[in-house]
């Protein structure tokens, strides 16, 4: 009974979100698009980093790859094919990064992903200057903001379903063991490197798709714009605030933080990154496991005191 109610509630929620463009003005729709994008990014980030504890700082590298694929290919190839190619390139980069770092201790992965966006930005800049001769590109696609929003929403829902499914499957269980203790994991016969690699590849492909789908919104694309490190930073902080190990954590972190960032960038454009950094440090200190855990802890405490009160 409870299950049916939950399913019905979720379907209503999805229907409401899908019909949002019919009620919103252009600004509202833009807000919803950004929100859908960041919720998907944060959920995809948590898909890999939540259970394994590997901190990926490469989100924007994949987002940028996706956006640049659309910018470079959308004039010669049909749109669905471009998305497919973008996903393929994102997957290939993720496999290279994963294969070379995920067998080692987590720090190597962090360092590698830390510079990855900068590396790809320089490579794209080099290619554009020396081969094509121009730095920026324009994207002219007949894709309306509504369509972008629906695509992002669909991708976000797929990502959530994927996380839910992984959490219940064997691979999810394996990931939990890896996150808790790698030695134990290897002793019970889990192929650690392959499990981590698979998850990282899936997460990176989704991030690439987010970038590719959002690209038509920007119209003008340039390496410095699409490889903006703030995106990696925001994704990370959103997933952390909500709780990266929880299914609904990234979503709950992304919604309030995205709105807050919108407000901050509108009102304090010069102090934006200082405030972001301070907020980030605050979250690491005050809510190391995320808001969801914190609420549950408080809830649990309150209940326990209630119980003891009733017993005595």
């Amino acid at each position: 009974m409870k299950r049916i109610a939950t399913a019905a509630g979720l379907i209503t929620l999805v229907a409401a979100l899908a019909s949002a463009p019919f009620f919103l003005d252009a600004y509202g729709l833009g807000l919803m698009m950004g929100l859908a994008g960041y919720v998907t990014l944060a959920t995809a980030w948590a898909l890999f980093s939540g259970p394994t504890g590997y901190v990926s700082l490469a989100t924007v590298a994949f987002v940028g790859i996706g956006a640049y694929c659309v910018a470079a290919l959308s004039e010669v190839l049909p749109y669905p094919l471009v998305l497919l190619i973008a996903a393929g390139i994102g997957l290939a980069v993720a496999l290279v990064v994963g294969l070379s770092t995920l067998r080692l201790s987590g720090v190597y992965f962090v360092i590698f992903t830390f510079g990855l966006a900068e590396l790809i930005r320089q490579l794209v800049t080099f290619y554009e200057i020396n081969v094509t001769g121009t730095l920026g590109r324009y994207i002219f696609l007949g894709i309306t903001p509504e369509q972008i929003y629906w695509q992002l929403l669909a991708l976000g829902i797929v990502t959530m379903l994927l996380r839910w499914w992984i959490g219940r499957s064997r691979i999810g269980l394996a990931l939990k063991v890896i996150g808790d203790d790698e030695v134990v994991a290897s002793h019970v016969g889990i192929d650690i490197a392959r499990t981590k690699l698979a998850l990282f590849a899936i997460s990176a492909t989704i991030m690439t798709l987010v970038g590719a789908i959002q690209a038509p919104r920007w119209t003008y694309v340039e390496p410095a714009i699409v490889f903006n490190p703030t995106v990696s930073f925001l994704t990370l902080i959103m997933a952390l605030l909500g709780g990266a190990t929880r299914l609904w954590g990234p979503l709950l972190g992304a919604v309030p933080l995205f709105l807050l960032f919108e407000w901050l960038s509108a009102n304090f454009p010069n102090h934006y990154s200082i405030l972001l950094g301070l907020l980030f440090i605050l979250i690491v200190f005050a809510l190391p496991k995320g808001v969801l855990s914190f609420i549950e802890q408080m809830w649990g405490k309150a209940h326990r005191t209630d119980d003891s009160g009733a017993r005595s």
Binding site: G53, F233, I274, G277, V284, P288
Partner: peptide
């Protein structure tokens, strides 16, 4: 050690943006 590693990476990542923001300002 791993928990410390993650925490320190996250905290100093935040610090990065604070110092950078001050310098930009």
């Amino acid at each position: 050690a791993m928990a410390l590693e993650i925490d320190s990476i996250l905290a100093t990542f935040g610090l990065l943006f604070v110092i950078q923001g001050v310098m930009l300002l």
